[in-house]
Simulated assay, not measured.
Amino acid sequence: MGALVKLIDAILLVFFTVIAIAAPFLDAQTCLPIDLFPDVLVELKLWYTREYGDYLVAEKPSFFVGLVWLELLFQWPLSIANLYAIVTGKCWLRTTCLIYGVSAFTSMIAILAELMGSHKASDKLLMLYSPFLGFAVLAILRGLLHSGKTTTASRRPGLNRKKMV
């Protein structure tokens, strides 16, 4: 079990690093004024939109803008907390991974339902978004797995002693 947890942590470390960088510099362009960003980042976002045909980024439907706000205000800080917890071995990683995973999973289901239901999305675009659903499931799984580092109340001898009156 310990090896599986370490593998998941390694994968999530890379994923959370990508989110920690991409969310404020690329995704934020969806809902913040474009003149806040350097030209190179704006051009990168425009290239991505053309290359993958991401009509959600181009058209900015209200539900998508709302999900980007959710990412920026809730998921992005959690991704940074998860990075810190993975690197330092904090015991609260399970909790923050579970919270992040459930939130990201919910968002990705809405986005993928739109992409598949609209019939506007290319296979290339679907292949780009689909892994994010997998990473969300992986974060949920990590939140549910015990790494062996945490101690429960039943294992702490001080808490199991009866009080003498």
Rank of each mutant, 00 (worst) to 15 (best):
M1R: 12
G2D: 12
V5I: 13
I8Q: 11
A10D: 02
L13V: 02
L13Y: 10
F15M: 03
F16V: 00
V18C: 13
I19V: 15
A20I: 10
A20E: 07
A23F: 13
A23G: 04
L26G: 07
D27I: 02
A28L: 09
T30P: 02
T30C: 12
L32V: 04
D35L: 01
L36S: 07
P38M: 04
P38Y: 06
D39V: 09
V42L: 07
K45D: 11
L46E: 15
R50A: 12
E51P: 00
L56Q: 08
L56I: 08
V57D: 11
V57T: 15
A58L: 06
E59W: 07
K60I: 01
P61Q: 07
S62H: 06
S62P: 01
F63M: 09
W69Q: 07
W69N: 04
L70C: 04
E71R: 07
L72C: 05
L72F: 08
W76H: 11
P77C: 12
P77T: 15
L78I: 14
I80E: 05
I80T: 00
I80C: 11
I80F: 04
A81I: 05
A81G: 06
V87F: 13
V87G: 00
K90I: 06
K90S: 14
C91G: 08
W92V: 13
R94C: 06
C97L: 10
S103T: 09
S103K: 00
S103P: 01
S107K: 15
M108D: 15
A110W: 12
L112A: 06
L112H: 03
S118T: 14
H119I: 03
K120D: 01
S122Q: 10
D123P: 00
L125R: 09
M127N: 11
L128T: 11
Y129G: 01
P131Y: 08
F132N: 12
L133T: 15
F135A: 03
F135Q: 03
V137M: 14
V137A: 15
I140Y: 01
G143N: 09
L145Q: 06
G148L: 08
K149E: 14
T151D: 05
A153W: 15
S154Y: 02
L159N: 05
K163C: 06
M164W: 05
V165R: 03
